[in-house]
Simulated scan of single mutants.
Amino acid sequence: MTRKRGLTEEAATASIDQACRMLRLPTIRQQFPDLAEGAARDQMSYRAFLAELLLAECDDRARRRSERRIKAASFPRDKSLRAFDFEANPNIDPATVNTLATCEWVKKGEPLCLIGDSGTGKSHLLIALGTEAAMHGYRVRYVLATKLVNELVEAADEKQLSKTIARYGRVDLLCIDELGYMELDRRGAELLFQVLTEREEKNSVVIASNESFSGWTKTFTDPRLCAAIVDRLTFNGAIIQTGTESYRLAHTKALAEQTQAS
Rank of each mutant, 00 (worst) to 15 (best):
E154T: 15
E154V: 15
E154D: 15
E154R: 14
A155E: 05
A155F: 08
A155P: 10
A155Q: 07
A156L: 12
A156S: 07
A156P: 08
D157C: 15
D157W: 15
D157L: 15
E158D: 14
E158S: 14
K159R: 12
K159V: 13
K159Q: 13
K159C: 11
Q160C: 03
L161V: 13
L161H: 08
L161R: 06
S162A: 12
S162W: 12
K163S: 09
K163A: 07
K163P: 08
K163T: 10
I165M: 01
A166Q: 07
A166H: 05
A166L: 01
A166C: 07
R167W: 09
R167C: 07
Y168H: 06
Y168K: 04
Y168C: 01
Y168D: 03
G169S: 13
G169W: 12
R170W: 06
R170I: 12
V171I: 13
V171D: 02
V171A: 06
D172I: 12
D172C: 12
D172E: 10
L173P: 02
L173Y: 10
L173C: 04
L174W: 08
L174E: 02
L174Q: 03
C175H: 04
C175P: 02
C175F: 08
C175D: 00
I176W: 03
D177E: 14
E178A: 05
E178N: 05
E178V: 08
G180D: 00
G180C: 02
G180Q: 05
G180W: 09
Y181I: 09
Y181R: 03
Y181L: 05
M182D: 08
M182V: 14
M182S: 05
E183Y: 14
E183H: 14
E183P: 06
E183D: 11
L184P: 01
L184A: 04
L184T: 06
L184S: 00
D185R: 07
D185T: 10
D185A: 06
D185W: 07
R186W: 10
R186N: 04
R186A: 04
R186C: 05
R186M: 08
R187T: 13
R187A: 09
G188M: 06
G188H: 04
A189T: 02
A189R: 00
E190P: 13
E190Y: 15
E190M: 14
L191H: 08
L191C: 09
L191E: 05
L191F: 11
L192E: 02
L192K: 02
L192S: 00
F193E: 03
F193Y: 05
F193Q: 00
F193R: 00
F193D: 03
F193T: 02
Q194V: 14
V195E: 00
V195P: 03
V195T: 08
V195L: 06
V195K: 01
V195C: 06
L196I: 10
L196W: 05
L196R: 03
L196V: 11
T197M: 10
E198F: 11
E198A: 11
E198D: 12
R199H: 03
R199Y: 04
R199K: 05
R199N: 03
R199D: 00
R199S: 04
R199F: 04
R199V: 07
E200H: 14
E201Y: 07
E201T: 11
K202H: 09
K202Q: 09
K202Y: 09
K202I: 11
K202C: 11
N203G: 14
N203F: 15
N203I: 13
N203H: 15
N203V: 13
N203C: 14
